[in-house]
Amino acid sequence: MAVLTMGLIIFYLIESSLPAFLEINAGLFDPDSEWRPRSANPSYNILPMILATLFVSFLGVAIALPFGIGTAVFLNFYVRRKIAAFILSFIDMLAGLPSVIFGFLGLVLLVRWFETNLGMTTGECVLAAGILLAVMLLPYIVSTSYESLQKAEKRYMYASLAMGISKEHTIMKVILPAIKKGILASFMLAYGRALGETMAVMMVIGNSPIYPRLFGRAQTIPALTALELGSVEYGSLHLSALYAANVVLIVILAIVLGTGYFLQRKLKKYDEI
């Protein structure tokens, strides 16, 4: 059944996006045109959305990584086991929250903060979405890097301490370099998650189909789909273009997540951390 579902989805994606690829063709990626599916002379440039998706997600992971790894180090090396377990369970719970709640909080806290403190007319922007994504990715990054840190500590910490070397030096020079491959793997997996995030991003990014700037509005592919799906007609080129955009997204996702899983399996195979 799982295979069947996958088959169905792939079949549908290809079947439905085919008209767009055939008819619009290079227009899908024409940097000079715009995304104007509803005008009398429609154009379907999905390039801004692709770039925005990549950019926002990258921003999210880039913010989440230092905070996530820092938290994992802090909890593993400087907080007592039991307290750390308690805090970790809280951070874990964050992962269980629906993304709408994140979107809601992002809107009433982040976006409003941007408006009042940075003097922006609308606080909805790429940066807000990036920060929000970072918060959503934190539980995942904290828990994976906490696990790797525990393994690395078990393997290397005493050997280094026994040489009369301080804990801090060991963390910076041995433990963190030792887990960098593991971090790369979780970077890829986290990036994959960020790429597909729909609701939270959609609620704070402003949704304008233009090229992304840090403090400007933009629109990601999932957000575009979620917003315009309700108003498309069945069999229209518009729907097909949406499908095409999602096919592009899925191809990117497959590459990113595939690399992530591949790295993870390779690490496991060679008993690295």
Binding site: A2, M6, G196, E197, Y234, N246, L253
Partner: peptide
């Protein structure tokens, strides 16, 4: 391998894809 890959493939899909497919297949078709 195929079943496994399809698990991971489905797991990696953005949630909106399920909305998109569900909408076009169930409601439209």
């Amino acid at each position: 391998k195929i079943v496994q890959v399809s698990f991971y493939f489905l797991a990696g899909l953005p949630s909106i894809i399920f909305g998109l497919i569900g909408y076009t297949v169930l409601i439209f078709r």
